[in-house]
Design a protein around this nucleic acid. Structure first.
Lengths: 343, 343
DNA sequence: CTGAAAGCGCTAACAA
DNA sequence: TTGTTAGCGCTTTCAG
């Protein structure tokens, strides 16, 4: 069933039917209703491709996922972001087009998406310090929104990010308030922008209390269980070992926990862990002496929603002045994951 | 840059240029080369929407992800599948369109995808026992491939699946060979087809050795850390507790490990764990007395590739006779994750 | 081997 | 308020 035949059945022109269906004002209420009913009855749906060609709008948003670095796709957090963004796309009639590319071909992927007219805009994931993609997208003229920020870049662009500095300042302060003075940081890959900011928050909190950050207590890398385990084992063998760990992910925290137990120490008695990730409800129901965490997964989903909404707004309004949203992480202590963080 | 202007610049008709670019035989090698060069120089890419409209092919594959049940999107394994499928799509020129829907609207989502002509086929995830989606897609006439199978359905369809029965039979036998007689199963949600099959494999192995499966040693549910922990705690309080755990996911295994330690038992001395999931390299480097696991994540990625390739083949060939691929899980013991499982 | 012309299904000026 | 006409950018007969 297409427009033309539907129009014929109704004894109307395709134009009128189109207008009625798309809510144009200049069509009489009577015919509109008649058309709507007929369309409903015939189970008519406008052909997407034709619509796209005619309007010049792809009604789709692209997400490019580079894969040679495993972090992005393996990170469970990515799925949450997609879920959040997908909710918004569904609501607003957009398709989500995901492209997997070896990361040395990422630039070409954006350019192709652009020149083939596949998408109206893109969402950019996992920005690195001084990420080159910003300049490239600017140059392409393809609307985009970053999930995260890029520290080393002066040009302005739209982004949605969580306040990583503040989250880690608070988490560090929490441990300091408990009396800890030797606090280790198990962080993400150093050139990821979020990791840089988290480290800054941690160091600022220490410095503010007159404690010099100790490089021996900081490790950066892929946020896996093994990372947490190895780091904990190693650090606990120092002559002046940490009494607490602050980790950037739940997996690292689990690993650290294992390392701690292998060293014969007991969680909450000898040592504490704070993690940034609420991922799977692990580490919940603790007391103040036990692990706490800040909410990541729920906020990533919310970030997905906001990125998507922001991008669609920009596309539909044509207004390209950069906009930002900074979300606060929620510190979760001794209870299950709370609602998504507030702005 | 579009076909028309490119043709003008070359002093050729759009037809000829199109033919040259699309590899039609009836164009002279000389002009083909000339056209190719010009296209390259002008950085010309055919407009996707126009191509789609003209050919009637969407050059896109849909993935519908229902979200009210959290399992799918939260499961890290899903990201691996997407990565694998995405590789193939990229190679063969297809877009991957992901739709997130509240799971009570899944049927409508497929119907819309179909009638709007958004995609040429769909990949179906996480089949349940007696999954109704098969009948629906059959009825819609939309080509599809299942990742997994549906036990309770007689109609035939294409699928790619891992041999869950055999994986769990082998894992159970491994524990039996070590001398265990009280083996617990921490399984996925009961109405998921894969969970049903895993259970069957486990029970078959026990029965074959004359051991009656004990319902008190079987638990089914969302495969979280908490599930593993709670199940382990509970089962270890039985008057006749298990000496080994077989879990369907790494997270459950981690949880079980925590539960075991809380109970004052020691891994590898008092108790063993085998898990189906190689997720993050956890539990590796064990001895025979220590945990082993079968490769899931790497095989899921491979499954993604195969599903995508199978679907595209069917779409392009027009041949709708159902095809299947059964992959064997690889038992990984005392070493890091191996290569993807072989067929 | 190349080109002219029609058409994919829709939207959007412009007329009436 | 409705219809006519052109056109989005490509592919694909059908002629030459």
């Amino acid at each position: 069933m297409n427009l033309k035949t539907l129009a014929q059945e109704l004894g109307l022109s395709p134009t009128t039917v189109s207008r009625a269906l798309n809510g144009y004002p200049e069509v009489s209420e009577a015919t509109r209703i008649r058309v709507m009913k007929a369309a409903e009855a015939a189970n008519y749906r406008p052909n997407t491709q034709a619509k796209r060609l005619a309007t010049g709008r792809a009604m789709a948003i692209g997400h490019i996922i580079p894969i040679s670095t495993r972090h992005e796709i393996v990170n469970p957090v990515f799925a949450d972001f997609i879920a959040g963004a997908g909710e918004v796309y569904a609501r607003r009639g957009y398709d989500m087009v995901i492209t997997i590319v070896p990361d040395d071909q990422e630039a070409r992927a954006y350019a192709e998406l652009r020149s083939k007219g596949n998408v109206d805009g893109v969402l950019v994931h996992a920005p690195k310090v001084e990420d080159h993609r910003i300049a490239m997208l600017d140059h392409l003229g393809l609307p985009f929104v970053l999930h995260g920020r890029v520290s080393g870049i002066e040009s302005s662009y739209s982004w949605v990010d969580v306040n990583n500095v503040r989250a880690f300042t608070r988490a560090t302060n929490f441990l300091l308030d408990l009396g800890h003075r030797r606090i280790a940081l198990i962080n993400g890959i150093g050139n990821m922008d979020f990791a840089r900011r988290r480290r800054r928050g941690y160091e600022q909190a220490l410095t503010a209390r007159g404690i010099a950050p100790d490089p021996a207590l900081i490790t950066e890398g892929e946020m896996t269980e093994a990372q947490g385990h190895d780091a904990a084992r190693e650090m606990l063998q120092l002559s002046n070992p940490p009494t607490a760990f602050l980790t950037a992910s739940l997996l690292s925290a689990m690993g650290a926990r294992r390392g701690i137990e292998e060293a014969g120490l007991k969680m909450g008695r000898d040592i504490s862990i704070v993690t940034h990730d609420d991922e799977l409800g692990y580490l919940k129901n603790g007391t103040a002496e036990e692990p706490i965490f800040t909410a990541t997964r729920s906020s990533v989903r919310e970030a997905g929603r906001r990125c998507a909404a922001l991008l669609i707004d920009q596309i539909e309004s044509g207004d390209r002045t950069p906009r930002h949203e900074l979300m606060e992480a929620v510190l979760v202590l001794g209870q299950s994951t709370g609602p998504a963080p507030t702005a």
